[in-house]
Amino acid sequence: MTRLAVPHFTLRDLWLSTFAAGLALAYGAAVVAAAEDDPWPDLREALFEDRQIQPGDGVIRLEAPYRAYDAAIVPITLAAEMPQTPERYIKTITLIIDNNPAPVAAVFTMTPHSGTAKISTRVRINAYTNVRAVAETSDGMLYMATKFVKASGGCSAPASKDQDKAMARLGRMKLKQSTPVRLGQPNEAQLLISHPNYSGLQMDQVTRHYIPAYFVQDVTISYGNETIMTVEGAISLSEDPSFHFSFVPEGPGALTVEVRDTEDAVFTRSWPVEPEAGS
């Protein structure tokens, strides 16, 4: 699979390079460190080199709670503020959580078929941090929206509240479509993937060692032959990753999702979509 990520870095590289630091950051020390060292200049250089990044107004909006209710499940919305047209559209959105052990939470790749290009997901947040959405438009411009979020311990927070149930469900997917599905217009849907998405910072139940990171790495959502969105994920995505997305059906077809995790397990599923013509 082609890596669509950021220049010079795939997410996995970045994750590996920051993993050792992440262990040290796993606990509250991260809060202190965050106040002293701003990781953004280094991150910015690693991810975007010296390219200009403009304010997100009119292009990309980021919604995040100022204070998280559960640091392991922080809802985040990335919303395009411009229409997705073949002439100009948002090509990628990189979701960055500055003070997380692996700051790049996900890279979303979109197409003109991505509807409103509004994405919601849920992330782990390990320390008080800036959260950033950097959108790259199809003409190669970068735009950034930033929010500060107060949360701590999300990456090392213990896995699953009902551990037996979670493992029994591994790989199961659920799609929720808004109805009726409208032809030729953006329609919203939510994809749920049952996966522990182990961060590598959680303690094993039996051995009392850290559970190796094991997470959803690639998600491809297609409608018919068209790719709607791909997601390159990492350890900052919450257990049971959830993605709200939108798509524009030009006729009846099927939404197909392919998920690959870091152990190369592949889960695929299709759901028929029956749009209402002329609605």
Partner: peptide, 20 residues
């Protein structure tokens, strides 16, 4: 019977939180 597992998964995390 599931407490040992929960203690193993959460104990260190809780203890760190308690110290803080």
């Amino acid at each position: 019977a599931k407490l040992p597992r929960a203690v193993a998964a959460r104990g260190a995390y809780y203890l760190e939180g308690l110290k803080q």
